[in-house]
Simulated scan of single mutants.
Amino acid sequence: MRTLYFDCFSGISGDMVIGALIDAGADPLQMEEELKKLNIDEEYTLSWGKVVKNGIRSTKFDVILTSGSEQPHEHEHSHEHSHENSQSNGHEHSHSHEHNHTHTHEHEHNHSHVLHNHHGSRTYKQIVEAINEANFNESVSNMSLAIFRKIGEAEGHIHGLPLEKVHFHEVGAVDSIIDIIGAAILINQLGIESVQSSAIPTGSGHIHIDHGIYPVPAPATLEILKGVPIAANDIRSELTTPTGAAISAVLAETFGSLPAMTVESIGYGAGTKTFENHPNVLRIIIGEIQ
């Protein structure tokens, strides 16, 4: 059985998942074409390229919004504005030695679709309708819908709202939509039949989000990870985001150590942050389990 294993030694986020899948051999150009079915490609460009994180060559994936700032967004962390107590301490560049040769792809303009919202928030209902109207492969649609539902239910629980009334900025953001559906497209493309994962480290400390200063893990992340083994980690930063938590919680059938398998490919997906003594990457291992 062709199995994908998430080795989340530095947490997991949507952009890290896509970066790791591309690094393991998935075709980002095919993903890019599939994503055009959402008809929101006038709102973003995609870039991916090789970087080195603390000695590990990995792939960095970014969704760059086409209005406002032209800098790559730390998009998996779009629900926050800044981190407290992160371990950058001036080491952001001196320890990363990044060599980022990105491929950026412009998109044609389309102006009609339920998701067209000028970078504003989208409702859970709008996202579901858009996925259903896009006519993705059934597996891609099912994975995407399940992940969005997981996040929507968590957000609804935290804010005291039924799923239908969840109107979110975080999950409704363009970058999160791309991360979730893009990951589903690449996983389907690679012919993955089962998913397993390590325990999930969440990090610690505090983050600033729209609602104020929150602890790490963020409430939505922790809600999503109910029933999932959480790994101890003393890094004072957010390592696992709601999107990353939902991808692992929904797709992984089991959580534990690397299973006995014949390894076929390995991918490293880079996170945005750089830590002094810790490679901020997600490793995925793909192989056959007998």
Score class of each variant (00 low, 15 high):
Ile192Gly: 05
Ala199Ile: 13
Ala183Val: 13
Lys125Trp: 02
Leu163Arg: 08
Gln196Ser: 12
Thr221Lys: 07
Leu225Asp: 01
Gly156Cys: 03
Gly205Leu: 00
His103Tyr: 08
His99Ser: 13
Ser176His: 11
Ile213Arg: 01
Arg122Glu: 13
Asp175Pro: 02
Ala173Asn: 15
His99Cys: 11
Ile177Met: 07
Ile200Pro: 02
Ile177His: 01
Leu186Tyr: 03
Leu222Ser: 06
Ala183Glu: 10
Val140Lys: 07
Asn142Asp: 07
His119Pro: 06
Phe168Val: 12
Ser197Cys: 14
Leu163His: 11
Val174Ala: 06
Ala154Gly: 12
His111Gly: 14
Glu98Gln: 13
Gly191Leu: 00
Gly172Ala: 08
Thr221Asp: 01
Asn142Leu: 09
Lys165Cys: 03
Asn137Glu: 12
Ile131Met: 04
Ile187Ala: 03
Asp179Gly: 11
Ser121Thr: 14
Asn142Phe: 09
Lys226Cys: 03
Gly160Gln: 06
Leu225Gly: 05
Gly160Trp: 12
His103Phe: 02
Ile131Gly: 07
Glu153Tyr: 02
His111Trp: 08
His105Asp: 09
Lys226Ile: 08
Asn100Ile: 15
Ala154Asn: 12
His109Asn: 15
Leu186Thr: 07
Pro215Asp: 09
Ala218Phe: 04
Ser204Asn: 07
Thr202Gln: 04
Pro217Arg: 11
Gly205Tyr: 01
Asn132Gln: 12
Gln196Cys: 11
His111Asp: 15
Ile213Thr: 02
Gly227Ala: 04
Tyr124Gln: 07
Gly203Val: 08
Ile178Leu: 11
His119Met: 01
